[in-house]
Nucleic acid binder design. Structure first.
Length: 229
DNA sequence: AAGTCGATGGACT
DNA sequence: GTCCATCGACTTG
């Protein structure tokens, strides 16, 4: 069959799918919910919690994500005003990485969602390193394990994700990233939703999701310890 | 422990 | 020229 994990997608400079090595896949590598309409991107984000992402010899379990909808629907989305050279891949098919440089020093990693032409995406905000701890430490320095991928820019560093990952597929192993189903699934009851970070508009819509109580989450900590240790 | 603020560069109007 | 989906060093208590 001609089915690719990344239908409709072709990199301008890179191997064609037909040229890629045949990877024996132990099961389907596309996930229909990634292609859900942009209007349902919040549910897609929630679903990604607990899923694992491997890159650069490190594998993380996603613990915190944020949903962004597309053109005209979400003022906080890079795609809000339509496609630009930077946001081009957001308008492509789901299952690809959208990386961008921010604040002059940080990279952030998103997974493109929605139907082709819709610019929905999920920002990966935090994860727990479940494999490749030494490699993660090499990149992140001598920090606590829970801090290795806590925060979107730290997550990108831990996985060695920068510009070169932009537009690559995260489903079929053709790029540096590979998404895989949860080793330990996350029940709905374990998930908390709240406002997105740094987003003033649409503050009423809780499009940030995290695993409740997980130490790797960069969640607001409204309740602080009452006493010093 | 929690708040403040500077660094630093590209996209977009 | 302005805006940023940030981080971490520094300050204060």
């Amino acid at each position: 069959m001609t089915t690719s994990a990344c239908p409709g997608y072709r990199r301008e400079h890179g191997p064609r799918f037909a040229d890629l090595p045949q990877v024996p896949l132990s099961g389907a590598v596309d996930y229909p919910w990634l292609h859900a309409p942009a209007a349902e991107v919040a549910e897609t984000a929630r679903t990604l919690l607990g899923w694992e992402l491997a890159a650069g010899g490190v594998r993380i379990r996603l613990t915190e994500v944020e949903a962004y909808a597309g053109t005209g629907e979400d003022p906080a989305s890079h795609a809000h005003r339509g496609p630009t050279p930077r946001t081009r891949v957001m308008f492509g098919p789901a299952g690809h990485a959208y990386t961008y440089f921010v604040f002059g020093m940080h990279w952030c990693l998103n997974i493109v969602c929605g139907r082709d032409g819709e610019a929905a995406a999920v920002l990966l905000r935090a994860g727990e390193v479940v494999d490749g701890l030494p490699a993660a430490r090499t990149r992140r320095g001598d920090v606590a394990d829970r801090d290795l991928a806590r925060g979107p820019a730290r997550l990108a560093v831990a996985l060695d994700v920068t510009a070169s990952a932009n537009g690559t597929c995260v489903l079929d192993g053709s790029g540096p990233l590979l998404l895989s189903p949860p080793t330990r699934p996350v029940a709905r009851a374990e998930v908390t939703a709240g406002p997105r970070v740094g987003v003033a508009a649409a503050h009423d819509v809780p499009w940030r999701f995290w695993i409740t109580g997980d130490p790797t989450v960069s969640a607001y900590r409204r309740h602080v310890p009452r006493r010093r240790g």
